[in-house]
Design a protein around this nucleic acid. Structure first.
Length: 888
RNA sequence: GCCGGAGUGGCGGAAUGGCAGACGCAGAGGACUCAAAAUCCUCCGAGGUCACACUCGUGUGGGUUCGAAUCCCACCUCCGGCACCA
């Protein structure tokens, strides 16, 4: 414990607070006292603060420090406001790094991971985060992944799990398949290496069953950043339109020949999806995706057979991400077959082309070159007619003109007209607005059995198989007699073997005979176990629910405990998970709700997407710090490759955890980038030292005031004598109010800290300038407020000064006081005087002054009179207590 | 190309219709010291002035308003996301 008598002998200026000793002592205290244990029976006051759990790399980095500092400030503040806070932590512990380490260091991924977790937990504790470690969830432990497997089986029962062969994304470097969401610009989200297309049989979760809900419920998420919601909307990609059936003409058909209805009705129709039924009269050709399964059958035995198959081959070989890039030139070939437009009986040729995707809609399109830019480019290249059927609303000639004139206009088009307009050349629909015709034509088709209104999504099912060891084993057995059989619930968990060999080639799981050889759950005959493991995003899709009931051995969590804490009131994490994790977690929550496990539609009520931590970096070419064209230092995300990372542990050792936390929260708003700046860190350290010295300076008088045992007044009723004291009381309550609003309502930690700093400055000048005249009761209350408002950001120093100053109880148990509104009422206020909107003067007036009095006072002001120069103002605007504007 | 966000001192940033630049950093001057560090005090948008006064100033141009960093329109720049989804 610090000996204060020693301090008083040294010059105050020499004192720097002993953060290392103070911080470790409080951390130990918190652990021993289990200060952060989650309250039981939370009821209506529950508040669930959650930060995205980390991958246990073994080293805490600055990005982690930022998320957890944000969450911790909130958690501590909410506890002070009487909330029953759940603030848990765990580890997203499956994944490739541990497996790679296993290959490199010949250590089992489990040992490696557990060691990293121990290291990271120690580092977490050094930051002083108020986490309930008793609820820790570690996804790589059987007591967690047991429930991944259980949920897999439950989802299977509901038809939400299936296995199918599909063209999938294969990451060569990670040696595994990836889900659609996990491919970014043709590259693996994790290792950034290019992704290949393979055809494999894989396990999928039927997330598309929930597409409509996942989209619609985004509207409920009022406290999510607009950008994240937009990204999810785009990813789900809902389009309304119609599936339209075109009659296929026989192989022998050639243009000019009569269409034999009896013959065509024998052939299977060609189905296309369109969002533009209004352009149906403008169809001049159709296009299939090259890999469309019907293409082979359509050309079989025709003269074009070889040519078409050669093109299909070529298209299949081309890199898929190059082929489907938006700027790729459109190309394809005619397949020699024709179809009939159901609306007008037109015969149109069928092509295959690189720009049509098999995975979307029906894998075939109707092409309307006049009104779709892609179709237009293709038609131009292959000399296919362009037929305008929608005229710009202001183009009277096109609307009223003859067919010939329109044909000429069509031929002259330089680009597709994609805007809404007026229907032309469309028979009975002519003259109607195209937006209205969309529905009318779809209805017309539906009535005659030529089509059906439908909704398409871009969202695909979630591919969850991974050909890797370090993940949750998929609880499936392949039996030669019974086929694909789910493992019995009572046999869970299917554990990862301890004796796998990590050679670096192939999935080690497949090489462990004891694992692979299984008994069929149905017939008890010999069977083979599935050796694929689950995508690690499965683990993180429901961990927030496990925290609600972490020790449950019979269920992933009980309904009672889930309902007691869910939804997460405030979720905090990086924007990089805007689609991946946040979409999967929303999907899981809805599935769990439908399984009757929890009563909650959306997992995360409020979302705070925190910005990256950046730093200056050395330009490898010049060997100097990278600068922009103006010579200003450039900042980039802290990373290994740029060598610009700052180790949080190093900062803790040099400045202490409180300084690190304070700087991280002060330097920038939470959702923006944080530019690392050593000088800024220094500034925060100086501030905490000033608080320390101020508290030591006040300690004798504070102890004296506290020793009277009187109830510490909030200063208001005291009716302070002098101006400085009244101002001090005002500042104290104003700070209480500002900090509460900034943290509690706006989550603006930077301005909350600025308010605390201002308050510290004010208290310091009050006690130094007033000297003996300073009211000890007022300073005692002010110090109390200073420590309370500092506590969420810098809990160690605040706790220590609370104790040292002689305040009773633990700071952890204190309530954050409500400000007293009457303390914020001032008898005199400064009013700004404007003439024609320009500030000319400022005057002090009674806060109660009426509009008329303010007007009089303004007109009486010398400077105002000088500016008006005798003119009479035409109009006077009075904003009570703030300003008077004289217009004249 | 489409969608989303942002442009404010030397720097990070405050102010969401009413005093632009809170708070912090950097910088300048001073006090303490033999000196330095630490600490404390003062100044710190630009022009202008001995000092005031005054003028200009929130990416650019227009608009609404008594009054605009803030609201509306157009444009420019930067950041992020998506990208032939029919």
């Amino acid at each position: 414990m610090t000996d204060n008598s020693q301090n008083s002998q040294a010059s105050l200026a020499e004192i720097h607070y002993p953060f290392a000793e103070v911080e470790s002592r409080w951390q130990q205290h918190w652990e021993e006292e289990q200060t952060f244990a989650t309250p039981v029976a939370p009821g209506a006051d529950k508040y669930y603060v959650l930060e995205m759990f980390p991958y246990p790399s073994g080293r805490l980095h600055m990005g982690h420090c930022r998320v957890y500092s944000i969450g911790d400030a909130l958690a501590r503040f909410l506890r002070m406001n009487g909330k029953k806070v759940l603030h848990p932590m765990g580890f997203d512990a499956f994944g490739l790094p541990a497996e790679n380490a296993a290959i490199l260091h010949k250590v089992h991924p489990s040992q490696w991971t557990e060691r990293c977790i121990d290291d990271m937990k120690a580092q977490f504790k050094m930051m002083g985060f108020s986490l309930d470690w008793d609820r820790e969830a570690v996804t790589c432990r059987p007591d967690y992944y047991h429930w991944n497997q259980w949920l897999f089986l439950k989802m299977m029962e509901r038809g939400l799990v299936y296995k199918k062969a599909a063209a999938i994304n294969w990451c060569v470097s990670c040696n595994t398949v990836l889900a659609n969401e996990q491919v970014e610009q043709g590259a693996c989200w994790r290792c950034k290496n290019p992704v290949e297309v393979k055809n494999l049989e894989q396990w999928f979760f039927k997330i598309t069953d929930y597409a409509e809900q996942l989209l619609a419920d985004l509207d409920k998420l009022n406290d999510w950043p607009e950008s994240v919601k937009t990204m999810q909307r785009n990813w789900i990609g809902r389009s309304e339109g119609a599936v339209v059936r075109f009659k296929l003409l026989p192989k022998e058909f050639a243009p000019g020949m009569p269409v034999d209805d009896a013959q065509t009705s024998q052939l299977p129709d060609v189905e296309i999806f369109t969002t533009r039924p209004d352009t149906l009269f403008g169809v001049t050709f159709m296009v299939f995706a090259p890999e469309h399964p019907r293409v082979t059958e359509l050309v079989e035995g025709t003269p074009r057979d070889a040519e078409v198959k050669a093109y299909v081959q070529k298209a299949k070989q081309e890199d898929r991400f190059l082929r489907t890039a938006a700027d790729r030139e459109k190309e394809g070939c005619f397949i020699g077959r024709y179809a009939v437009n159901p609306l007008n009986g037109d015969v149109v040729p069928i092509y295959i082309a690189n720009f049509v995707l098999m995975e979307y809609g029906t894998g075939a399109i109707m092409a309307v070159p006049a009104h779709d830019q892609r179709d237009f480019e293709f038609a131009t290249k292959y000399d296919i007619p362009v037929r305008m059927v929608i005229a710009p609303p202001d183009d009277a000639d096109a609307i009223a003109g003859s067919d010939e004139a329109r044909a000429q206009a069509s031929a002259a088009l330089k680009a597709a007209y994609v805007e809404p307009g007026v229907m032309v050349g469309s028979g009975a629909f002519n003259g109607r607005p195209s937006e209205e015709a969309k529905g009318a034509i779809a209805e017309y088709l539906e009535e005659r059995g030529f089509g059906k209104r439908t909704i398409q999504f871009k969202l695909r099912d979630w591919l969850i198989s991974r050909q890797r060891f370090w993940g949750t084993p998929i609880p499936i057995v392949y039996c030669p007699a019974c086929g694909t059989v789910p493992v019995a619930e009572s046999d869970l968990p299917i554990r990862l073997p301890e004796n796998a060999v990590f050679s670096g080639s192939g999935n080690p799981l497949a090489a462990v005979d004891e694992f692979v050889n299984a008994k069929c759950p149905k017939c008890a005959g010999p069977a083979r176990r599935e050796t694929d493991t689950m995508d690690t995003f499965v683990d993180s899709s429901w961990y927030f629910l496990r925290y609600c009931d972490p020790h449950n051995t019979s269920l992933p969590f009980s309904r009672e405990n889930g309902d007691a804490w869910m939804a997460v009131d405030q979720y905090i994490g990086g924007i990089e998970h805007a689609i991946l994790h946040l979409l999967y977690a929303r999907f899981f929550t809805k599935v769990l709700r439908d399984l009757g496990l929890v009563d909650c539609d959306e997992p995360f009520e409020r979302l705070l997407a925190q910005g990256m931590v950046t730093n200056t970096f050395v330009d490898k070419a010049t060997g100097q710090n990278a600068v922009d064209e103006n010579g200003l230092l450039k900042y980039a995300k802290m990373s290994k490759s740029l060598g610009n990372g700052v180790d949080p542990i190093d900062i803790i050792k040099r400045y202490g955890a409180d300084t690190a936390r304070l700087f991280i929260l002060f330097a920038s708003p939470a959702e923006k980038e944080l530019e690392w700046n050593e000088n800024g860190v220094d500034g925060c350290s100086r501030f905490l030292n000033r608080v320390w010295r101020l508290a030591l300076m006040l300690e004798p008088q504070v102890r004296k005031v506290l020793s009277t045992g009187e109830n510490l007044s909030d200063g208001v009723s005291a009716g302070a004598a002098d101006e400085a004291t009244r101002e001090m009381i005002f500042m104290t309550h104003r700070t209480l109010q500002r900090v509460a609003v900034e943290i509690g309502e706006r989550h603006h930690f930077n301005t909350a800290i600025a308010a605390v700093m201002e308050f510290q400055n004010a208290l310091y000048s009050y006690v130094t300038k007033s000297g003996e005249a300073a009211d000890p009761k007022v300073t005692t209350f002010a110090l109390r407020v200073l420590l309370l408002s500092l506590f969420p950001f810098a809990p160690h120093i605040a706790s220590e000064l609370w104790r040292v100053s002689g305040f009773t109880g633990r700071l952890d148990d204190q309530r954050y006081p409500a400000h007293n509104p009457s303390a914020l009422v001032r008898s005199e206020v400064e009013v700004v005087l404007q003439v024609n909107g320009k500030i000319r003067s400022k005057i002090m007036v009674s806060a109660e002054a009426t509009d008329e009095q303010l007007r009089e006072a303004a007109l009486a002001d010398e400077k105002v009179q000088a500016t008006l120069a005798g003119r009479e103002p035409k109009k006077v605007i009075v904003v009570k207590g703030r300003l008077v504007n004289l217009v004249g």
